[in-house]
Design a protein around this nucleic acid. Sequence first.
DNA 1: ATCAGAACGTCTAATATTTTTACACTACAG
DNA 2: CTGTAGTGTAAAAATATTAGACGTTCTGAT
Lengths: 198, 198
Amino acid sequence: MNKYGTILIVDDNTAILTAMRYLLETTFTQVLTISNPDDITKTMAQETIDIVLLDMNFALGVNTGNEGLFWLRSIRKQHPQTPVVLMTAYADINLAVKGLKNGAADFITKPWDNDELVRKLKDVLDMQNEIVSLDEMEKEHIRRTIDHCHGNLTRAAELLGITRQTLYNKMKRLGSESHESLLSNDRAAKDSDKDKRL
Amino acid sequence: MNKYGTILIVDDNTAILTAMRYLLETTFTQVLTISNPDDITKTMAQETIDIVLLDMNFALGVNTGNEGLFWLRSIRKQHPQTPVVLMTAYADINLAVKGLKNGAADFITKPWDNDELVRKLKDVLDMQNEIVSLDEMEKEHIRRTIDHCHGNLTRAAELLGITRQTLYNKMKRLGSESHESLLSNDRAAKDSDKDKRL
DNA sequence: ATCAGAACGTCTAATATTTTTACACTACAG
DNA sequence: CTGTAGTGTAAAAATATTAGACGTTCTGAT
């Protein structure tokens, strides 16, 4: 079985940690559990963590989730590329939104469904593993930028920090490789309303 | 006042559309409202829309939000770069998570607070306007990739679709510009567990 | 309707980057 | 011990980017 690296589980309920460890040991090569979020920083500095499962409701935070949000931000700050999946006992829409907007990869509620949890964790890791080539990344970013400038290539080039000529080159080169034009139909359709708020 | 382009509001309650129009006319140069989501595709093909405000609970969908989710996906598919802000009368955590994971830019609940709504819409547009230079994008992507490969530069170069030498060049060039190394401490700290699941 | 300014599309020569190929060195697993 | 994989470096050839320029087309304002 292809294992999914190291997972770090943070929850102040040690019973949950034990249950989680037992559940996830078959999926991950290493399961680290800590009950005191103060240890997150140290642990993540010492170990190579592939994913974090973080409880949002610590005793101190009196269930507002702010405590968890604080730790989420702390993790994101020091390890922006490590996905964090949140757990909460309270289905609070604001907390979910805040969590995801603060960079959480996903969100599950307690009590949890074992299969769903494992599936979500796998999904997150499978997802982030999709590293694309520089060319593809570049192509996508160029497309986005041109789109954003409503087709104004001069301004797009400026934003991208390259010359207009280079942008032409790249469009020709990158665009032809996959037989789709980098110029969106945005331009052809309606090019009259440019420069509105750029 | 610097206006924020064109907003498209989709809600099957025309009273809400009127209220929204009145509220948002001062912030946006153009406010388009439609009560039938079937018209979304046509409208977005004809007009250049900068942001969409989409209701999630249409009469047909019997308040599961699936109807709204469907339209969200439809919009995202045809206009991946146009931000969509969701509206729902029911604080459903799953719907929020699903919405955000399907690419919604933000989420508000009815009844809404006028100031909050305007602020959120502005935030979304301000956010997406932060187009970074190709170099910065490249740097970030390279950092992410090296991180993902746990420091294996040969493999990172391979994934990026460039030669190892070019990766060295880029690291030197891009890294020096901002006086921070592209090589994360990940490598120095723990280089023994490579190739686990690459 | 006209005019100025902005953007387009294209070109060149001077720079710069990337690729290719190569070599020596280290770490480590069998 | 030996083969494999990764590192760090180098030089020449092949490509790509830049700066600068030119005439054309589009667009908004008068």
